[in-house]
C-alpha cells in the first residue's frame, strides 16, 4: 500500500508538470508523425508495394512503435538533469520511500506520455485514411514497449554523467532502431547477421505485433514474451541503478 502511494506521489509530480504543458505537448507530438505520414505514406508510399494492402497501412504500426519508443525514452531523460544538474533527485533519495516506487512512478509517467502520443498518431492515421484495427492487445503492446524504453532511458540517466553522452544514446541506439526494427520495411529484407541482431531487439517485436494486430491478425506469444522479458529485465537494472544512488 505504502509503495503504491509513493508511486502515485512520483507520478503526481510528473502529472502536475505535464498538465501545465498539455496543449504544447500534444501539438509538438503531432509534428513528427505528420511528416512521416506525408513523406512516406503519401509521397514515397505510392510507389512502394508491400504485398496486400497499402504502404500506409503497413507504415502506421511502424510509426506507432518507433514513436512510442522515442516519446517514452525522451519523457524520462529529464531525470538525468535532475540527478546531475538540478540535484532534485536528492529529494527522493532522502525520502522514506522504496527505490522501486520512484522507478515505477517515473516509468508510468513516461508510459502516460507515450500513450497520449500513440493516440494522436492513431487519430492522424485515420485522418490520412489508414485501416487500423484497435484492440486491447494493441494497448498492451504499446504499454510494454513504452515501459521498456522508459527503463532504457532511466538506466541511461542513472549511469551516464554528461549531457552529450545522453544525447548519444539517442543517436547511436534509438535512431538506428527507429529505422531498422521492422518499422519502415520488414526485417526479412536485412542481410543474415544483421537480421538476427535486429530481430532480437524489442522494437522489432513491437512492430511485428502492432502490424499483425492492426491488420486484424493475432499476437505472436513469442514476441509478447520477449517484450515482457525486456520490461522485467529493464526494471531490475533500473531499480538496481537507482537503489545504488540511495546508498
Amino acid at each position: 500500500m505504502q509503495m503504491l502511494y509513493d508511486t502515485w506521489t512520483v507520478f503526481w509530480r510528473d502529472w502536475v508538470v505535464l498538465k501545465r504543458r498539455l496543449t504544447k505537448f500534444i501539438l509538438a507530438r503531432m509534428v513528427a508523425p505528420m511528416l512521416y505520414l506525408v513523406a512516406f505514406g503519401w509521397g514515397l508510399g505510392r510507389s512502394i508495394n508491400v504485398g496486400s494492402g497499402s504502404y500506409l497501412d503497413f507504415l502506421v504500426p511502424g510509426i506507432l512503435a518507433l514513436n512510442s519508443m522515442n516519446i517514452s525514452f525522451n519523457s524520462i531523460t529529464p531525470v538525468h538533469a535532475e540527478r546531475i544538474y538540478h540535484k532534485s533527485l536528492e529529494e527522493y533519495i532522502l525520502a522514506p520511500i522504496k527505490p522501486a516506487s520512484y522507478v515505477l512512478g517515473k516509468v508510468l509517467a513516461a508510459v502516460l506520455r507515450s500513450l497520449i502520443s500513440s493516440a494522436i498518431i492513431l487519430i492522424l492515421a485515420y485522418a490520412f485514411g489508414a485501416h487500423i484495427m484497435l484492440s486491447p492487445l494493441m494497448l498492451l503492446v504499446l504499454i510494454l514497449n513504452a515501459v521498456i524504453f522508459a527503463e532504457v532511458g532511466f538506466f541511461a540517466a542513472m549511469k551516464i554523467s554528461t549531457y552529450e553522452e545522453m544525447s548519444q544514446v539517442n543517436t547511436y541506439i534509438l535512431l538506428p532502431m527507429s529505422f531498422l526494427c521492422g518499422t519502415f520495411f520488414t526485417t526479412q529484407a536485412l542481410p543474415g547477421v544483421l537480421r538476427l541482431v535486429i530481430e532480437a531487439l524489442p522494437l522489432t517485436h513491437t512492430s511485428m505485433l502492432l502490424r499483425s494486430l492492426a491488420g486484424g491478425g493475432g499476437a505472436e506469444w513469442l514476441s509478447l514474451s520477449v517484450l515482457a522479458f525486456y520490461a522485467l529485465a529493464g526494471f531490475y537494472l533500473s531499480h538496481r541503478a537507482f537503489a545504488k544512488l540511495a546508498a
Binding site: 509530480r13 502536475v16 508538470v17 535532475e82 538540478h86 540535484k87 532534485s88 536528492e90 529529494e91
Partner: peptide, 11 residues
C-alpha cells in the same frame, strides 16, 4: 538543508 539548491525546477 543541503549546501546547494536542489529544488525541482519544473515546480
Amino acid at each position: 538543508v543541503p549546501q546547494h539548491v536542489n529544488f525541482d525546477q519544473d515546480l
